[in-house]
């Protein structure tokens, strides 16, 4: 028996109002729920990053506000909400104001595609992965616009670097995803997870899948603008890069979106390589909502690897960044796709 509280809520609403209004109400409810997830995720990941960074650097990190300092980031967010929104006088006001919403809307849209468990999946379409990569590409526009509209040389350099970096590394992320899609044979996220009931894709695809995973992790770090690819912000060179001129809540949008993008890229890694919400060897697949637990555990593991990268590697120079992408990752990726296609064709997958 599947305990489905969502069906219960649906029937409860049907008893209260006509069917077409129920539909709209449910859409609103889901949107509000995802906004909540967005905020909580962003705040939690900021806290996690600070704690983990502290342990890497022989410190303790925020540990005063709430248990283990969990509410530190909530307090920080409240501070940012209460701050004045400033801007440069000669900024392009319209673009300047609209830019953060590009970033936050696309992050939120991408979040709707992520299956937290078998039951919790807001938007499951047959071109799910394609939609996810396209939507998250739009988020770059927000960063680019912010750099341009601020009318500040540091912001502009940051924005230009974003353009270079994103165009380059989106290719690698896309091709690593394509490699796994060749193996999975579908773009629908729920089906990709279902296929992995016999073994996670990183096991099914063995050598090319592991190469694709490594490329995905490298390019994913670049996509989420994290060290060693944080040329976009580059505190030591550009002030704060593209968001130098943003303050208060507008700054917080970028800050939260950055961490939600980290969650997104980790979720895609988990869906593509580590079986999404599936438990290892199917031990708890019959328990409803157990998938949520496994999904969160796996995503946190991948996020930890990203944070490990961040506190280990120094920042690239811009020419090194481009050399890495165009001379190393891209050729390897192309060979890897052919290798994967051959393996699927010859039936060498496990």
């Amino acid at each position: 028996m599947i305990l489905n509280i969502f069906t219960d809520i649906h029937e409860l609403l049907l008893g209260l109002m006509p069917e077409n209004i129920v539909h709209i109400t449910e859409l609103v409810l889901i949107a509000v729920a995802y906004l909540g997830i967005f905020a909580i995720l962003g705040l939690f990941l900021v806290w996690l990053e600070r704690r983990i960074a502290a342990f890497f650097q022989f410190r303790l990190g925020p540990n005063r506000v709430g248990p283990m300092g969990l509410f530190q980031t909530v307090a920080d967010a409240l501070k940012l909400v209460s701050k004045e929104l400033t801007g440069t006088e000669k900024a392009d006001k319209f673009l300047y104001k609209i830019a953060p919403y590009f970033v936050i809307t696309t992050a939120l849209m991408s979040l709707s595609l992520i299956p937290f468990s078998y039951e919790i999946h807001a938007f499951d379409i047959n071109i799910g992965l394609f939609f996810l990569t396209s939507v998250s590409s739009v988020g770059v526009l927000g960063i680019f616009l912010a750099g341009w509209a601020s009318n500040n040389k540091y912001s502009l350099i940051g924005g230009m670097r974003t353009g270079i970096q994103m165009i380059s590394y989106e290719l690698s992320v896309g091709m690593a995803i394509v490699t796994m899609v060749v193996l999975a044979g579908t773009l629908q996220i729920s089906e990709i997870v279902e296929i992995q009931k016999d073994g996670w894709l990183i096991y099914q695809g063995h050598i090319p899948a592991i190469i694709a995973f490594m490329i995905f992790m490298i390019a994913g770090t670049a996509e989420s603008n994290r060290t060693p690819f944080d040329l976009v912000e580059a505190e030591s060179e550009l002030g704060a890069g593209f968001h130098t001129e943003y303050s208060g809540m507008n700054f917080a949008y970028y800050f939260l979106a950055e961490f939600v993008n980290l969650f997104l890229i980790s979720s895609v890694a988990v869906i593509l390589f580590f079986g999404g919400w599936l438990s290892p060897f199917g031990i708890t697949d019959t328990i409803p909502f157990a998938g949520l637990f496994w999904f969160v555990i796996k995503v946190l593991g991948v996020i930890f690897i990203f944070m490990w990268f961040r506190w280990t590697f120094p920042r690239f120079r811009i020419d090194q960044l481009l050399t890495l992408e165009w001379k190393f990752l891209l050729p390897i990726n192309m060979v890897n796709i052919v290798l994967m296609a051959l393996m699927v064709w010859l039936g060498l997958t496990l």
Partner: peptide, 21 residues
């Protein structure tokens, strides 16, 4: 490099031995 920093992390995460705060 990751092994070195990972060593720091796990030592400090589980034992807080080298934490200087």
């Amino acid at each position: 490099g990751m092994r070195v920093t990972g060593g720091y992390f796990f030592v400090n995460f589980f034992t807080k031995r080298d934490v200087i705060t």
